[in-house]
Design a protein around this nucleic acid. Structure first.
Length: 589
DNA sequence: CTGGGGAGGGGGCCC
DNA sequence: CGGGCCCCCTCCCCA
């Protein structure tokens, strides 16, 4: 243990993040409120905590492993470890914050590994001998320290799949660990959550939020975000879909911290705690594109391992992290600010000046306040739209009826009622919907499963078959064809502009058709890789679909995309494939 | 379960 | 380059 303490100096604040007070927490509508970041605060805090741990000061938890004892702080362990968070009931409103633990026996984690993990928890630096890597990996998995587990797997050249760590298994592992502790410490635990796949993944997602942005209240290393409570309503686009999580687990990608011979030190500062999601540090090779971040740009913005190079200092606000990630990064010049990668969720943000806006979705900052009702917004344009409620302004009138709308999209939806168009059809039960999100909701439910054996309408099948082999063709009626193009866009996992407003704006339809056709071809080319037995390889198909999409995201080719819908659409690929297969079989008969 | 409205978030365009 | 504005999409909630 002492041998590892030499790593502490690495925590010194050697790379200060420039303070951009003008950028942080400045609220145009707030008189006299300014945010003054103290970028070194987090590291200093952690350093003090580590000193306390070493001297036993204020330690309220002792971990033991095969006779070795490690005094520590419950709050710190809960902040860094999903296992302890659940054990202490600090997650998801667990309430009391953890009962009367004083000793927790963890014989299943090797002492050296436990020591290394503790060191990591208090220094953001993982220092371990190569020979102990596997033990640390095992310990990190058991304790639910995902970023460490990912890093270890990277170094070991393993994937989560190879480790047998699917989400289900990991969930089971957590539970097994819990049982172990229940048995070993004899402590009554709080209510146990469901262990189904989705829930486990959700818990994993919660890890980053609760650890970084909304840590358990007693945690002394809580992030000083002024609006952490607002993070309960983290944007839907931030948490990856369960499918994405699964993909991530299977791929086990998390950067590529290089391993010097003999031992390994992973020092990403507290950014390790941010690495709950895969970084898009190495986009797949793609043809040159103007839209794409050049390699040079990428190197300008991020370390080649995707971390913020040399920055062991934590920006005080996540918004500042974003600024730091895009603009500072070792003080090197930058060529372009677009696209930029969010240092928290690793999402590629397109558009100059959009990253600060995106970062507010993490920090919860809502600088724009309605002067009438006091409601706050993260964005000025949202406030502007909100103000229409007070002014009564409804700038989108329906040309066919007296109805007026606040949002253009509402008008568009409304116009569907007049036209009678229901362009979004369920491929299983063939129920048609006016709105795409209603179809998605329908698909998420199981309301149509009992009709799954029903034969799909002719058009879908024919169009898909035509696209697959390029030879068969049968014209379906225009509405159906357009609907099918929408389906094809869904097949491709394209969101954003992809679905478009079918039948709404005649001028856009042709353009949309062309774009959809291109996307469909791309998707089907990809599908063709799987050959005639593609159904047998469904999981792989699913993953590949996601990979393709991830690749496009990295290229900036998927504007407006959010995660879960794409993943969901990956499922659609399977479903439609299934349909096609069934019909091909029927035709052969 | 479905239709409809509201809100949040991302991207494009422009200044 | 950053911000404003707009459009679009998705999710959530309610009736």
């Amino acid at each position: 243990m002492d041998a590892m303490r030499h790593t502490l100096p690495r925590l010194q604040l050697t790379v200060p993040v420039p303070i951009k007070t003008g950028k942080v927490a400045m609220s145009p509508g707030e008189d006299g409120l300014i945010g003054i970041p103290f970028p070194e605060h987090s590291n200093e805090l952690l350093s003090h905590l580590n000193n306390q741990r070493r001297t036993g000061l204020l330690c309220d938890l002792t971990l033991t492993s095969r006779g070795a004892r490690y005094p520590t702080h419950r709050s710190v362990m809960a902040a860094v470890s999903l296992y302890f968070r659940r054990l202490f009931g600090t997650e998801e409103g667990g309430g009391e914050g953890g009962g009367g633990f004083s000793v927790c026996q963890l014989d299943c984690v090797a002492p050296d590994a436990l020591d290394a993990l503790l060191e990591f928890a208090y220094t953001a630096t993982l220092t371990i001998p190569s020979s102990g890597m596997r033990d640390v990996l095992r310990g990190a998995q058991l304790l639910g320290i995902q970023c460490v587990a990912d890093a270890c797997r990277d170094i070991l050249g393993e994937t989560a799949e190879a480790e047998g760590e699917t989400a289900e298994q990991q969930g089971a592992q957590y539970l097994a660990t819990e049982k172990m502790v229940e048995r070993e410490s004899g402590v009554e635990k709080g209510s146990r959550r469901k262990t189904d796949k989705k829930k486990v993944k959700k818990i994993r997602l919660h890890h980053i939020n609760s650890t970084l942005l909304n840590p358990p209240p007693p945690s002394p290393i809580s992030h000083p975000s002024p609006a952490s409570d607002s993070l309960r309503s983290l944007p839907s686009t931030q948490p990856p879909s369960p499918e994405q999580e699964e993909l991530r687990l299977k791929l086990g990608q998390n950067g590529d911290p290089r391993a010097p011979g003999g031992g390994v030190t992973l020092n990403g500062g507290l950014h390790h705690w941010l690495h709950e999601r895969p970084r898009i540090a190495h986009p797949p090779p793609v043809p040159p594109s103007n839209d794409k971040l050049s390699e040079d740009d990428e190197m300008e913005s991020f370390g080649d391992d995707g971390m913020l190079i040399g920055s062991t200092s934590i920006p005080t606000s996540l918004a500042e992290q974003g600024a730091a990630a895009s603009a500072v990064v070792g003080g090197r010049k930058r060529k372009s600010q677009t696209p930029q990668q969010c240092p928290v969720c690793q999402k590629i943000i397109h558009g100059a000046g959009k990253l600060p806006r995106h970062m507010r979705t993490h920090t919860g900052e809502k600088p724009f306040q309605c002067s009438t009702c006091g409601v706050r917004f993260t964005r000025n344009d949202k406030l502007k739209i909100h103000m229409r409620k007070h002014t009564g302004e409804r700038p989108y009138p329906c040309p066919h009826c007296p109805a007026r709308f606040l949002h253009s999209y509402d008008l568009k939806n409304h116009l569907s009622l007049h036209s009678g168009a229901r362009p979004f059809e369920c491929p299983l039960c063939h129920k048609a919907f006016v709105r795409e999100d209603h179809l998605q909701r329908h698909r998420k439910g199981h309301s149509c499963l009992e009709q799954r054996t029903r034969r799909p309408r002719r058009g879908l099948e024919l169009m898909e078959v035509e696209r697959e082999d390029g030879s068969r063709r049968e014209q379906s009626n225009p509405l159906e064809a357009l609907s099918l193009q929408v389906h094809s866009s869904l097949l491709d996992g394209v969101s954003g502009s992809g679905a478009g407003p079918p039948l709404m704006y005649a001028g856009d339809v042709e353009r949309e058709r062309e774009r959809e056709r291109e996307r469909s071809l791309q998707a089907l080319q990809a599908l063709a890789q799987f050959g005639p037995h593609r159904l047998a390889g469904y999981p792989e198909l699913f993953l590949r679909g996601l990979e393709m999409r991830r690749g496009r995201e990295a290229e900036g080719e998927n504007p407006g995309g959010t995660h879960s819908p794409a993943a969901q659409r990956g499922q659609w690929v399977d479903d439609v494939e299934d349909e096609i297969e069934e019909d091909e079989a029927e035709e052969e008969e």
